[in-house]
Design a protein around this nucleic acid. Sequence first.
DNA 1: GAAAATTATTGAGACGTCTCAAAAATCATG
DNA 2: CATGATTTTTGAGACGTCTCAATAATTTTC
Lengths: 382, 382
Amino acid sequence: MAKLKDVAELAYVPMDVAFQVLNGSADIDAETSRRVAKAAESLNYSLRITQIDIADLAGVAKGTVSYALNDSDLIKPETRQKVLDAAAALGYNLNITARNLRTNRAGVVGYSWHVADDPSRMNYVLDRFIYLVTAAAEAQHYHLLTFIQPQSGADRVYETLIATSRVDGFIISDVAYDDPRIARLSAIKAPFAAFGGMYVPDADFAYVDVDGKRGIELVVDHLLEQGHERIGLLTRHPGLPFSDAREAGYRTAMQRAGLPIQEAWIAYTPNILGAASAATHQVMTAKHPPTALICAHDLMTLGAKSYLDDQDLKMPDDVALAGYDDDPTSAFLGITSVRQPIEELAPALFDILLGEINQTPREARQIAFAPDLVVRPSTVRR
Amino acid sequence: MAKLKDVAELAYVPMDVAFQVLNGSADIDAETSRRVAKAAESLNYSLRITQIDIADLAGVAKGTVSYALNDSDLIKPETRQKVLDAAAALGYNLNITARNLRTNRAGVVGYSWHVADDPSRMNYVLDRFIYLVTAAAEAQHYHLLTFIQPQSGADRVYETLIATSRVDGFIISDVAYDDPRIARLSAIKAPFAAFGGMYVPDADFAYVDVDGKRGIELVVDHLLEQGHERIGLLTRHPGLPFSDAREAGYRTAMQRAGLPIQEAWIAYTPNILGAASAATHQVMTAKHPPTALICAHDLMTLGAKSYLDDQDLKMPDDVALAGYDDDPTSAFLGITSVRQPIEELAPALFDILLGEINQTPREARQIAFAPDLVVRPSTVRR
DNA sequence: GAAAATTATTGAGACGTCTCAAAAATCATG
DNA sequence: CATGATTTTTGAGACGTCTCAATAATTTTC
């Protein structure tokens, strides 16, 4: 194929002038422009600056250009400068696809937070998490590819993405017990790192997590301090590690305080406003209703709050209310909540993933972060 | 570099056996395994099945393999089948990077919904929108790359992504007047399609939009029917097309009804719970406060609702309340809201983008969808 | 100032795919 | 069955980059 140099020579102009004409980036006199255009036409040349063009302009070999652009210290400073100048003059941009083919990497990691048909998809923590992971990735010149995982057979989607070299690895969240994605990715030795895993028995994959058991313990302890003895819990139906851990935290803390638990104080509900509201009704109309209520998942808090409003039950005096995830709604409504340190956790997770991808596993490839409690008026009597 | 065929020949085994040994996918007797492993070792071969391996196994030329795999009708059915069988036997996976380099495309479109440091980033409609766009993209074998655009100089990030062949085009949202991203992308002829644009003067780029002016008109008309004459509006500060359109809808509908507007009924506020709540206070304590309040942006609704709760003002009798975007919270709280047809709009937008990318612009590359009104108890007196 | 050691540059080839022009095989026609 | 027309397959080359081994230029050493 014709190169820019060929066009320039055919048109009797310097390469950078030819570039400017074809690029339209500077005013070149009409006669020259016409000549260049004609030359490009006859050579069937379409403007796309490559390292070869830079080499031609700088008068070096194409290998030199590659080294220089990649800051290799093989290259003498003057030469590097010459190359950089030529690259700038021609408005060079690296073709990432070509690099990726040569270096056998994608520079992309996959993340699926969109579980098809899950109504409670949107979530403050995950949203923030993925934003921060993206930021961490971009700092390392990686990008994030988002994709949809079907309800069943999700593991095959992951496998395809990695097998076709679309991505170098994955971030996964919402880890389940015996998660098929983890089984499959481990089996084919695909790099990945999970958000969640410390309560998955015998987990030997890379993860970061926030200790949800501890999180709820913090809440219970705080409520105990406030003088509550009858404390209720809204949580998901058992079966997910992070959810079960939170329930365990509740039971542990109550037990440690020597307080009996009435099962009627506990309601299992989907993390949906309406269902949570109904569950609150159920708990609050038990024989000896709780004086404080913990919502172990974000949307439940608003559902519960709404029920309390309807019944004219005031926080914190009629019922103390605490939630999870410390989202803006909780902050606005003045509701005590467990905060997860996403700002620290997300970059850590990406670094761990990089270790997995580059086969240089980090010392700490399983990290448990501690949550903290943000106390607000919803639980503090004045 | 050594191919699988070389390994197989050196080890005196059929290619598929060599594959199975190296892949660990079937139990091969120890002696054979050892021989294959040694052959691979001595040839410094690492397993990576390419079309050349398939060609070797199927006994055809590599070009034939490519045609066959791509369902070209140049190839005779039997030959195609032979190739497909060989591909299956070797567990072949296409290397997308290589294809992309050759065909000069990325198979990826970029989308940035993460505007750094924007506190109101999370948003039901955008979340749903991006999910549906992803689904539409995947149906066409495209993927979505998400990236962060800085507060200033965002256009350069877009330019880099396209110039390095990372993406084939962009979906953009939150379009502003004289949006620098649009200016830049248009200037460099980068394909993109926007969510929003019908209220951008002289817009000549591809977009889909939902008529926000019409949306608020629907709300006003509905409230008029319910007998309201003093109607308030919470909206963003002027300066964004979609926001200004909604305000215009309010003014138009009121005017059409011959009703005077008091400026004290209108409050400009960020789309944040706390600020919206304060704005509601401001409007509701005006001299002749409105009997109905329209929130033109999603989060404002909950902010307003919260203020009304605090003041013990009941919907719909004390104040009628209507919102925008029909998110699950509005549904749960029984709040009338304007619904945007995202389910139709997202696939349409992606199709338009495909047209831009493939230089086959769609007939209708600017589409305005009509919103509809979901009426709920918050505005309907019993 | 010549030889040796070091540093800098070169040029070719490979990554895996697609696609073109050319060659081969098959089919139709008289 | 020879010829031409058509269908099918082949083989080479290109996409743009990186990187290795080889060469060239420079510096050091005696």
